[in-house]
């Protein structure tokens, strides 16, 4: 097989989970049944259906999983629509991993970690959270705040309920936007919930979700006394090459595909406001 940055590998879909009405999680391995490549939490890959197109997705599985990779994919356009119609056994192409990862072996070590996700924003965080759970002793307390439109839009709810909620020294807070039958948990938007929870501002925080959620949640965290240099997020811009050459994801002197998608809030402050 050719080892090329723009030439993908063939992957086989071995499992499909319907998480929400518009999100499915796809498990992918190589044609030899083995994992296609290694990655670190926060990195992404280009998944493609030849003849339809190529899209960037976070690798949502943890690197500690040595058997396969997973992508949680929201249906929202041409390519994702075709991906959603795939069945187990279908082949796709994959290339990667791309981008900088969360500093799980750097700044995160020994810290209390706060993960805040909205909707499909859980995809990149799931990789970090499961990595942290795997090397649990390397990190302090873990707090997870996750919100979605409705209870049916919470991605990976099974794993959250059966595994994350039972993890020692870990708190999980779920919320949905509006009252819903069969939901007795918290109701309200993520930014407001975060403020209500009165979280300890010494934690290192990671925010992933729609831009509007990030904006308001960040403002809330700053009010609580969080330090911007210890708040991380990911950016999403249109991408083609994934390696800083096609020019598409350029913002200021950064290429999001190569210098991101993980950024510290203080780094974003230095970028022109165009993302």
């Amino acid at each position: 097989m050719i080892q090329e940055t723009l030439i993908p590998k063939v992957g086989v879909v071995t499992d499909i989970r319907k998480d929400t009405p518009d999100v499915k999680t796809f498990r992918v391995v190589g044609t030899d049944g083995k994992k296609l490549f290694e990655h670190m939490p926060g990195q992404c890959a280009m998944v493609s259906i030849p003849g339809v197109g190529e899209c960037m997705f976070s690798i949502t599985s943890s690197p500690t999983n040595k058997e396969y990779m997973e992508f949680s994919i929201k249906k929202c356009g041409c390519v994702t629509e075709v991906i959603h119609a795939l069945e187990v056994g279908a082949q796709v192409t994959v290339r990667g991993p791309y981008g900088k990862n969360f500093p799980v072996e750097g700044e995160f070590k020994g810290k209390d970690l706060l993960f805040i996700a909205g909707g499909i924003g859980l995809a990149p965080l799931r990789s970090v959270i499961n990595y942290v759970r795997h090397y649990r002793n390397n990190y302090g307390k873990v707090v997870i705040v996750y919100g979605a439109r409705s209870k049916d839009d919470l991605v990976d709810i099974e794993e959250i309920k059966t595994e994350w909620m039972n993890e020692p020294n870990t708190e999980v807070y779920l919320t949905i936007d509006r009252e819903q039958e069969g939901w007795d948990g918290h109701v309200g938007f993520v930014p407001a919930y975060v403020k209500e929870l009165g979280l300890n501002p010494n934690m290192t925080a990671v925010l992933c979700g729609p831009p509007i959620m990030i904006k308001f949640t960040l403002a809330g965290l700053l009010e609580l006394g969080f330090d911007k240099s210890r708040v991380y997020t990911t950016l999403e811009l249109r991408m083609k090459c994934g390696v800083g050459k096609c020019g598409r994801c350029n913002v200021g002197d950064k290429f999001v595909c190569k210098d991101g998608p993980v950024f510290r809030m203080t780094e974003l402050d230095e970028l022109p406001d165009e993302y």
Partner: peptide, 16 residues
């Protein structure tokens, strides 16, 4: 041209 894909059933072949 960068590459070609041949698909047959589920199978994808990538040709440089």
């Amino acid at each position: 041209d960068m590459m070609k894909f041949k698909t047959e059933g589920n199978n994808i072949e990538i040709i440089d």
